[in-house]
Design a protein around this nucleic acid. Sequence first.
RNA 1: GCCCGAGUGGCGGAAUUGGUAUACGCGCACCACUUAAAAUGGUGUCCCGUAAGGGAUGUGGGUUCGAUUCCCACCUCGGGCACCA
Length: 754
Amino acid sequence: MKEYNHLKIEKKWQKEWEKKGIYHAEDKSKKPKFYGLIEFPYPSGEGLHVGHIRSNTAMDIICRKRRAEGFNVLYPIGWDAFGLPTENYAIKTGIHPQKVTKKNTDIFRKQLKAGGFSFDWSREVNTTDPEYYKWTQWIFLKMYEKGLAYKDKININWCPKDKIGLANEEVVDGCCERCGTEVEKREKEQWMLAITKYAERLDKDLDDVNFLEKIKIQQRNWIGRSEGVEIEFRLSGVGHPTAIKVFTTRPDTIFGATFIALAPEIAKKITGKDFGIKIEIDRENKEKIGVDTGLKAKNPANGEMLPVFVVNYVSAEYGTGAIMGVPADDERDKEFAEKYKLPIIENYKKAGFKDYGKKITQFKLRDWVFSRQRYWGEPIPMINCEKCGWVPVPERDLPVELPKVKNYQPTDSGESPLANITKWVNVKCPKCKGHAKRETDTMPNWAGSSWYFLRYIDPKNKKSFADFKKLKYWLGNDPRHSGVDWYNGGMEHTTLHLLYSRFWHKFLFDIGVVPTSEPYAKRTSHGMILAEGGVKMSKSKGNVINPDEIIKIYGADTLRIYEMFIGPFDQSVAWSTDSIIGSRRFLERVWNLQYKVQKNKKYTEFEIEKTIKKVSEDIEEMKFNTAISTLMIFVNEIGKLDFISQDVYETFLKLLSPFAPHMTEGLWKILGHKNSINFESWPVYDLSKIKNKQIKIVVQINGKVRAEIMIRAEISEEEVKKQAISNETVSRHLSGKEIKKVIYVKNRLINIVV
RNA sequence: GCCCGAGUGGCGGAAUUGGUAUACGCGCACCACUUAAAAUGGUGUCCCGUAAGGGAUGUGGGUUCGAUUCCCACCUCGGGCACCA
């Protein structure tokens, strides 16, 4: 008997599969296609996380099953490599981020290959490759051309300690994510993308995609669509001809309005005065403050003159920046009214929805701040000419490559380090050939990840980001109901990445370069893997599990099985090194079953049909933990027998192969097959083969289990009742009692009510 | 404050449309094999009780012949949003 040697087996088959390129997707195929996608990793210096193994294995199992079901499968991988950690490392060490990225991707690649994932490595993409970001820049230029990219003076988050502009997502509770310093607002010219123009469609089209409900809910909350009415309140008294427009979702409460509240910016616009009211960033300070502007506004419903206040709880960025205060119906207005002794009307008359204004739709979604004052990102391909203003870099000059710099530290003025490279910055205007300067801001790291799944389809194309025919094949022909077939990723990317990439895709659809209006047909999400004890894995806590070591000791197959068995796929789970042994023991049992195989004996006693059904269904629902427990139960049962017929063993190996590809491949060859188990078709089940001559029925009395009886299948209800009542234990419990009712659930239980 | 999700043995967790609660795995105990240990195999393992039986799925109530599952109220934990008018 040969022992299960995972090191030898895994190395051997990984080499063989790579050599033969068996996981390469075909661009021209008569088979139906399946495009399975995972979020491409950020190659951090910390190496692969066991969480990567979890989500990659899940999609790997689905893709392997699809191949066995006869699909032409695309399961690609790449690197989302622009970003802060690499840049910060460069600032600290002076090593070029490209070098760091190369080193990290090499490590990640090696680690992923050791996991035995069926990626098509020939399509690897890297967002920091100029051949890749050329097209990221190209998409930006198209957006500029269509008026979706524009420059605007806005408040950005500024960390006074790091002297750096921060993205919203880098601000945690009003403080810098890295140094904890309180963030200030600073006005700065930024490139913006008009995602709000797509708000309506981004919301509505969620109806047509197969995303998990909680993902749709989060997207909808983020977009924040609400229908209301815009009402004009005419100003009078101080010689103001203007009116104040108010947005409300409750126009029916207009008779209860006792004041008007303005955002500070709006008040300044109307009166030209600064009232010293500020909207605090500090979220804990929720006390409502206001100043009376002295203006009066006429309520169009009843002609009453209402005082107009500047307040700190109305934002200029939502609605019209002005509200009607209805203290009787709104908690915030009530708090304000009580503090400033304003009247609170109860029992006022209700108005109709559109009686005093016109219906409009508002969104919480804001336009996307697209500029970063950083080095390690895609340069924004724009040139500022003294005469012509902003001029896009001509397409033929793409990509605008990142120049070499000596110092990656941002400048004191908050500009990108690129601003110091005068040779790079100073250019001729493409229009008038006059003196001009390049934009020195770069794109956020959400840019490259907004379209990477399209590049996988045609990664080496030099003429376009991807050939349209290939896009049509892999995304489908139906413009409304297609895209990547199945996209799995983390919940943390539900609002930003998922929304941004849907926005970009819709834009590309509108200009006719992609065939579908939605990028992803189906989206699911995984839970995180936490350290033992349920805390986050982190270097500083020293509780990070390195997958390499687990693979070395137990094998990739064991790690894969363990991570799929660890708990429900969509929930967070705590790592437990002690429990891995169970997955290893299971695989060893499977391995040892080969010595019980008898070639010519037909095996009829045990039903593999149920196992096929359950495992097949569980994979589709991502219930990998119960799929594995089903496989374990089968092995436990079959292990009790003296011999196993080869056909049953082979069917079992096919079911196990997506989970443990290396071992099953090894066994497949040992059984005498020349071809890879990867080319075998997925087992089908035939429920009619399950012969249940005897069925176990539970007998309850008043809902309490008292006995079990065996019945023949298909006997009548009357006979089952007779048999149940005649049971010894049952009759003992029934003696001296009157039977009121008998409930019979077919093939399951009988409940006698006394 | 609002919106999601989850509370089941010592631990990770199972449970079809409401139908045997605790599958599968870890751990633990005992047995076999062994000079011994490890490994492996076997048996047992929610609680009380010798047993018959009784009690348990965060807490309290309800619907039902029957509730982990459905309804109401509350508590705890995780995630998201946050003065959104």
